[in-house]
Design a binder for these strands. Structure first.
Lengths: 217, 217
DNA sequence: TAGATTGTTAATCGATTAACAATC
DNA sequence: TAGATTGTTAATCGATTAACAATC
């Protein structure tokens, strides 16, 4: 399997999104310089990332936008559909379940789960809310490998255990819980408050920082 | 002003959250070893981070949990209130505006903004939705330094320009747009899809990865 | 051609880890 | 005391950048 550095891996979503934006306005090529300016990183670093992805550019033109976008998608496995359940039908779960942008990345939400009897069997957009008692059987029936976790903190570990027991291998964790999982199960923490903390630090140190700001902490 | 490395800075939210969790069950001390196991990082790295924060531990006991939590909060400026507007009252904006957890970090939402006349002057929880025409004046009137941006991609840059013009210095960006801002304005991108991409890569390479997984990409 | 741009290597920089002394 | 743990330095590792050759 191909290998790129962890740091390069983290840059792929941003490359992908810039490429999509440029593609949608009909641009065909983009130079390492343009990419580096948008991302505010070094130009050489962009070329190195491309080399790691085994993408060749053209002299005087740059990199083919569509080819590069498709390369990133294939590298990340986005061309294959990933079926998932949204576990927790609160505000955030509802926002994620109704977000139209996921389908272009192969992410397909096949149902929602909630413990509240008043919500169960109602629908959110086109998704039915199932009772938490059916969580395990739904995962098994559809062979679901990933769940989106948006339950309250207190329920997070318990729900995770059920999912892992049923065969889930990846957890997209929107709760502020440091989940315990066995080896072979990957957790991605979206600790949203971290973003605010970085901005708070910046704002509270504005006077001291003035003159040496950076866009990315 | 105190300085810590970028990498250490990114770990602060996770330290903070673990400390809060331990504190809420009445624990008073935590060792570098415990922290390192929860975060799956090296024990020495935890001690180095504590040293950088000028926090001293106690032999045989570890670090005082409350003191450490308060230290991180002060370092990040969380003890001071940050007033903000949620710009874009869609599903995600609504979810963020109604999230109760922000107040403990000093984050105070003082209003919402939307361009849809059907939404304007209605309320979300305790927040009133104002028309986008009042965005600049609201920012000036309340001297708002940060906004939460959840508008559609196509409106993101335009709205940003209005906010920056009115004096905003920090943008918590939930849109998939690489915003252009002048020096002195900080953008924090919450490119949520990036989380899914990391999990997709993991799932699609499970067979090849089997046996050398990591929890963090 | 001159200019623009890629691709690669070596040097530098920054972050992590190993080793170990200090101490309760 | 022995064991547990912090704190610090030096070594290592990984990521970024500078320099520059290649080429359209």
């Amino acid at each position: 399997m191909e290998r790129i550095s962890k740091a390069a891996f983290r840059r792929l979503p941003r490359y992908h999104q810039i490429l999509s934006a440029y593609e949608s306005v009909g641009k065909e090529f983009i130079s390492s310089r343009e990419l580096s300016e948008i991302l505010e990183i070094n130009e050489t670093l962009v070329r190195k990332d491309m080399a790691d992805l085994r993408i060749r550019g053209r002299q005087n033109q740059g990199y083919g936008i569509t080819a590069l976008r498709v390369r990133i998608e294939n590298f990340l496995g986005l061309q294959e559909i990933t079926e998932t359940l949204v576990v927790g039908a609160g505000n955030l779960g509802t926002a994620l379940a109704t977000y139209a942008g996921f389908s272009q990345y192969g992410l397909k939400i096949v149902g929602m789960i909630d413990s509240d009897p008043d919500k169960v069997f109602s629908t959110v957009g086109e998704h039915t809310i199932h009772p938490v008692s059916r969580l395990g059987s739904l995962i098994r029936k559809r062979d679901i490998k990933m769940i989106i976790l948006t339950v309250p903190l207190a329920a997070a570990q318990e729900v995770t255990d059920v999912c892992v027991e049923a065969g889930v291998r990846a957890i997209w964790n929107f709760t502020p819980c440091e989940l315990q999982v066995p080896p072979g199960v990957k957790v991605r923490n979206e600790q949203i408050i971290g973003g605010f903390m970085a901005l708070s630090y910046y704002l509270k140190n504005l006077a001291a920082e003035e003159g040496n700001e950076e866009k990315e902490a």
